[in-house]
Write a protein that binds this DNA or RNA. Structure first.
Lengths: 339, 339
DNA sequence: TAAAATAAAGATACCGATAACATTATAATA
DNA sequence: TATTATAATGTTATCGGTATCTTTATTTTA
């Protein structure tokens, strides 16, 4: 492996001069610079980042720690984060926690050892706080994505859970729905908690009752199954049965519609469905599910930008929170007025 | 930042003893080990990977260089690769080349500087060879994914382009189609070239004519647009117009169906469509497009495994090629017999 | 022209770990 | 008990860069 010393010897200069050349220091004569540069090219020299990092204490490495890159929301976040990282000269490491705090913690330990310059994290749940604080102990800045953690002060890019939920609910209420169910993720995840709260608040705001039988918790994975929960709701006395369902995530939305179909319940005629977050359209036809679509690419892009600003000390000291608005796409799944 | 020396001082031992403890060397007394371990825990010490790498010449870093992580094929590849990498104690860096050789080359330079232990690459096209050879110059093993490069000897995980194409074509031919168009990516990409070849071979095999008017090149991006190409084909004399289309990638398939729809051409009644590779189903209904679905997760998983074997010298010297079979899903888009 | 200022390059130590060898303490053997 | 073998620990050099200080060469100023 070629080092700075090989170049130095070949060019008849000191290693320090070579270092100056590759770092574009200004106190190198043009003649020397040209000579060194030509030898670097000839010998195909590339500086060793480990050696550099050891001295500089910077790795130019960021990490994106999400629950599952295969969730299209995070796929797009990754793309955005990577674009910004590359643009700013950073590389991005990918980690999937599977919403598992132990796995997440193991990753974070690895990331600390790697001495990444910063981390973009969509935490598994509230108890991720411990691992994240560990990063802080190592002065590794963190930007939270999508899910914040109560009591944890750091930069974050979040969705406007309150407004977006309310607007989805209002859409249903305007269509005449009074018995609206919610299918949600675990309440130890901020997004689930806030969407739950906003769901309750909106019902109250419009003078509707909050029926615990219409509140179901599942999880946010792709294969969340709550066929039983659905069935249960539709075995309630008729006056309790929901006429609309609010699903709090892309996969929950899809699986809700699938479950309903399985139980031969017609959407939207018998029950309307709205969904927080959307999915890419890989079909030739229009999408079916009414969704508040999040600008997921920007979650990653803005997140990476904030992170790099933090790393490079160009950010204000006070932690910043960016709230990105969703885009509402009213579609067939909720287009059926009831009286 | 806490180092091995801080631990050593606190434990009243030499740095080397601490190093032995963290590396689980067997020649450390239990008493010493316990003492050191407790101090490591107390002081929250984590070894510095840069320092380790500098000595060991191993970074435990892999890279996944694909054209676009947002393409569901590569998303799934990434998930598979990451799973295997994590399992084996490696971390995965993510790079998107956007099928751009310059961008790809820039990435590869960064990866060399980072001294990654190995790279999983889906090359932009044939001229990626130069950059990939550069990696070899630095003894960084490469596993090619999905796209191989002629003349480049290395481990690879590929699709069976010949068989899969032939089977898709045969399916069409069995339905009575004689005028089959192909919508393909650029021919400087191996997959496109091989699918093109297999398309021609299959036509010949069944005694059908190869009509250049029915051979269209676009590209593999998400937003490939070939509405004009489609229109052109359907402005041919009736006896030349295709009754079926073979799209050589997931996005090409989707966009083909979309374009046809735009031109009010009915699928499958007026033209059947089959597609190489599929997409995840994010809808409640059955997918429409007949597709040869690739086990993308395994492309990544197996690729990472081969790569790690190569890195850790447990692989046979001779480069290996793994060919993963596709799964055929005949769906509505091609289910219409013609006489 | 001598003294001071500036530019260009070199020497050395260090970043944080580990490999290789050296030393000391302890146990086994003659 | 003296001698070896073995176990446990320490010392030093090194990985490939860069920060810092020093030296040498060149230019500017008085």
């Amino acid at each position: 492996m070629i080092t700075i010393y090989d170049i130095a010897k070949e060019a008849n200069v000191s290693a320090m001069t070579v270092s100056r050349v590759i770092n574009n220091a200004d106190n190198v004569s043009d003649k020397t610079r040209e000579k060194v540069e030509s030898i670097i090219k000839k010998m195909n020299y590339m500086p060793n980042s480990s050696a550099r990092s050891l001295v500089s204490k910077k790795t130019k490495l960021l990490s994106l720690l999400v629950t599952d890159i295969a969730n299209p929301f995070f796929t797009s976040v990754a793309r955005g984060a990577e674009d910004k990282a590359m643009q700013m000269g950073y590389q991005l490491m990918l980690c999937n926690s599977d919403e598992n705090v132990e796995k997440e913690s193991k990753y974070i330990d690895m990331l600390i050892s790697t001495r990444i310059d910063g981390a973009l994290i969509a935490p598994a749940n509230d108890s991720s706080q411990k691992s994240i604080l560990k990063l802080s102990k190592y002065n590794i800045p963190v930007v939270l994505i999508d899910r914040h953690i109560k009591g944890l002060k750091c930069d974050q890019v979040l969705s406007d859970n309150e407004t977006t939920t309310r607007r989805l609910m209002e859409h249903l209420i305007q269509q005449g729905h009074k018995k609206i169910a919610i299918i949600n993720g675990p309440l130890d995840i901020a997004t689930a908690r806030e969407r739950h709260q906003a769901y309750c608040d909106t019902l109250t705001l419009y003078g509707l009752v909050i029926n615990p039988n219409l509140i179901q918790q599942s999880h946010f994975f792709h294969d969340s199954d709550f066929s039983d929960a659905i069935q249960q709701m539709f075995q309630l006395p008729t006056n309790e049965q929901p006429t609309a369902i609010f699903a709090t995530s892309n996969f929950l939305g899809i699986n809700t519609v699938k479950s309903l179909k399985k139980h031969h319940i017609k959407v939207p005629e018998e029950v309307a469905v709205v969904c927080y977050d959307g999915v890419p359209n890989y079909t030739d036809s229009e999408l079916f599910l009414t969704a508040a679509e999040q600008p997921s690419y920007h979650f990653g892009y803005m997140g990476a930008q904030m992170l790099i600003e933090r790393i490079e000390n160009t950010a204000p000291e006070e932690p910043r929170t960016i709230v990105l608005p969703a885009e509402f796409n009213i579609r067939a799944s909720s287009l059926h007025k009831i009286e």
